[in-house]
C-alpha cells in the first residue's frame, strides 16, 4: 500500500472506480459521436445476421407448409428448390446453406475485429489519457465491450428483423397466402431471437482482442507527440 509516512490520511478511501451507469453513458456517447463509423462497423453484422435470420425464417415457413401434408404445397416446395423426400413433414436448411451462413458469420467477425482494431489505434491517445487520469485496465476493457455490446444489440436486432421480414415476404411471393396461414409464428420469433443472440455474441467475440490491446496500453503512449 501507499504509505505517506506519519501523516497518513486513512480517512480517504483508496479507490479507483467507474460506476456502471457512467461507463454506459461514456460508451453510448462514444458511439453517438462516431455514429458514421460505428454504423459501418455494425453494417457487416447487420448483413451477416440478416442472412442467418433469412435462412432460418425461410425454413420455418417451409416447415409450416409441409406440416399441412398438402401434396400440392409439397410439390411447390420441391419446385422452389427444397430437397424433400416424398411424405416428409419437416425440413432443415441444407448443408450447403449452413456452410454459407457460417462462412458469412466468420467473415463478419473478422470484419469486426479489423474495424475495432482500427478504432483502438485511432483512440490511442484517448486511452492513454484516461489511463493517466487513473483508469484501470478493466475500465478500458469495459468501455470497449459495452460499446461493442450496444453495437451488437442494435446491429443484430436490426439485421434479424430485416432478414426475417425479407424471408416472410419472399415466401409470400413464392407460395401465396397459405405460407402465412400455416407458418408457426412462435418458430419465426425464436429464429429471429436466435439470430439476434448470435449477432450479439459475434460482436462481443470480435471486440475481445482489440479491447485487450487497448486495455494493456501504457499511459506513456499518451505523452508521445506524433504529428
Amino acid at each position: 500500500m501507499l504509505n505517506t509516512g506519519k501523516e497518513e490520511k486513512t480517512e480517504i478511501s483508496r479507490q479507483v472506480v467507474l460506476p456502471f451507469k457512467k461507463s454506459l453513458e461514456i460508451s453510448f456517447q462514444s458511439i453517438r459521436v462516431r455514429f458514421f463509423r460505428s454504423m459501418i462497423t455494425t453494417m457487416s453484422l447487420v448483413l451477416a445476421v440478416s442472412f442467418l435470420s433469412f435462412v432460418r425464417v425461410g425454413t420455418d415457413a417451409a416447415n409450416g407448409l409441409l406440416a399441412t401434408g398438402d401434396p400440392e404445397l409439397h410439390q411447390s416446395l420441391v419446385n422452389a428448390g427444397y430437397d424433400l423426400e416424398p411424405g416428409a413433414t419437416a425440413t432443415g436448411s441444407s448443408a450447403k446453406e449452413r456452410w454459407i451462413v457460417i462462412l458469412s458469420l466468420l467473415v463478419c467477425v473478422v470484419g469486426i475485429i479489423n474495424a475495432q482494431l482500427m478504432a483502438v489505434t485511432e483512440r490511442f491517445r484517448e486511452i492513454g489519457t484516461i489511463k493517466c487520469l487513473g483508469a484501470l485496465d478493466s475500465f478500458v476493457l469495459r468501455l470497449f465491450v459495452l460499446e461493442a455490446g450496444m453495437q451488437g444489440l442494435a446491429g443484430a436486432g436490426l439485421g434479424s428483423l430485416l432478414g426475417g421480414v425479407a424471408a416472410l415476404l419472399s415466401t409470400l411471393i413464392r407460395f401465396g397466402f397459405p405460407a402465412w396461414q400455416h407458418i408457426s409464428w412462435l418458430a419465426v420469433g425464436q429464429s429471429i431471437g436466435f439470430a439476434t443472440v448470435i449477432g450479439c455474441l459475434l460482436s462481443l467475440l470480435g471486440v475481445l482482442y482489440p479491447a485487450m490491446v487497448a486495455a494493456r496500453m501504457q499511459p506513456v503512449e499518451a505523452m508521445r507527440v506524433e504529428q
Binding site: 484517448e126 487520469l133 487513473g134 507527440v225
Partner: peptide, 19 residues
C-alpha cells in the same frame, strides 16, 4: 492508477482532452 488519479495531475503539450 490510484496515484495517477489522486496524487498527480497531468498537463500535456497536445492538451489531450477527450474529444
Amino acid at each position: 492508477a490510484w496515484l495517477r488519479c489522486r496524487k498527480i495531475g497531468y498537463i500535456f503539450q497536445t492538451f489531450n482532452l477527450i474529444q
